Amino acid sequence: MVAQSLWMQKVAADPAHSRWYIERFRAMARAGEDLTGEARFVDAIAPRDAHILDAGCGPGRVGGYLATVGHRVVGVDVDPALIEAAEQDHPGPRWLVGDLAELDLSAHGITERFDVIVSAGNVMTFLAPSTRGLVLSRLRAHLRDDGRAVIGFGAGRDYAFADFLDDAAGAGFAADLLLSTWDARPFTDDADFLVAVLRPA
């Protein structure tokens, strides 16, 4: 049994946390805020009709958009409440409850590996620290040898960017491109956000 994610620890401490998170993004969508920047970036680098895994999909805003522009999307999240919201708000993708540290989509009949894997929304920082390398290894196992993984998260969340890149290398990834924003601004040593485009090493 792997360690419980920091996200599910939050949910255990406050059962209303998931509902708050869902309603926060629904309110932002109603207000017309731009919630698809990460998804547009992924769409720009993905082949047409790509097989895309939204790893840590939450209530589905990234994977939902990618499905509307023609990609074949599978979304996985450890929180059943978020998956339920994804199913309600973004029909189309296949949404699954699962722990990324134990990811084995063949158990769900999904044997085709992915062209692109995206992990947005600070997912990496909500993992139990002891599972970070394992999660990256599981993502690598689900990625095509010519595919790419796109992972973004902020600084100051107890996961140094250098440590993440070391963990990614240990999981069999090499960095293709490092950016500081989802709108493709260059990464700098003092950046407060990292968007890493990774390829199999």
Rank of each mutant, 00 (worst) to 15 (best):
R132D: 08
T131L: 13
S119K: 05
D146Q: 06
L127T: 02
N122M: 04
G133T: 08
A149H: 07
G133K: 00
I110W: 05
L136W: 00
I151N: 04
S106F: 10
A155Q: 11
A160G: 06
A155P: 12
R132N: 14
T111W: 11
G109C: 14
R148A: 11
I110M: 09
A168H: 06
A155V: 12
S106N: 14
V150Q: 08
D146M: 05
G147P: 00
T131Y: 14
A155M: 14
L139T: 04
D167C: 13
F161D: 04
H142K: 09
T111A: 10
F164W: 00
S119A: 09
G147H: 00
V116Y: 02
F126C: 12
F164T: 00
I117R: 00
L165N: 03
R140W: 11
A128N: 08
D145W: 07
F126K: 13
S137V: 09
R132M: 08
T131N: 15
T111D: 10
A149T: 04
Y159I: 12
Y159K: 09
A107G: 14
G152V: 01
F161R: 02
V118Q: 07
G147E: 00
L105F: 03
A120V: 10
A171Q: 03
A120N: 09
S137A: 14
L136V: 07
I151V: 14
R140K: 12
G147L: 05
D115I: 00
R140Y: 09
F153E: 02
E112P: 04
M124T: 13
L127H: 08
R144G: 07
M124E: 04
A169V: 08
L143F: 01
A168Q: 01
A160L: 08
L105P: 01
I110R: 10
I110Y: 04
G121P: 09
T131G: 10
V116H: 03
G170W: 05
A162P: 05
L136H: 04
A149R: 02
R157S: 02
I117T: 00
D167L: 15
R138K: 13
D163L: 05
G121W: 11
S106I: 15
A160M: 01
L139P: 10
G133S: 06
L105E: 03
Y159F: 14
V123R: 06
V123C: 01
R138Y: 01
T131E: 13
F164S: 02
F126Y: 15
G109P: 06
V135M: 01
A107Y: 15
F164E: 03
L134T: 12
N122W: 12
A160S: 05
I117N: 05
G156H: 11
A141M: 05
D166R: 07
G170I: 02
S130M: 07
I151G: 06
A171L: 07
A169H: 04
D145H: 13
S106P: 09
G170L: 02
G133L: 11
L134G: 07
H142C: 10
G170M: 05
R132F: 10
F126S: 15
T131D: 14
F126N: 14
V118E: 12
G170N: 08
T125D: 08
I110S: 09
G170F: 05
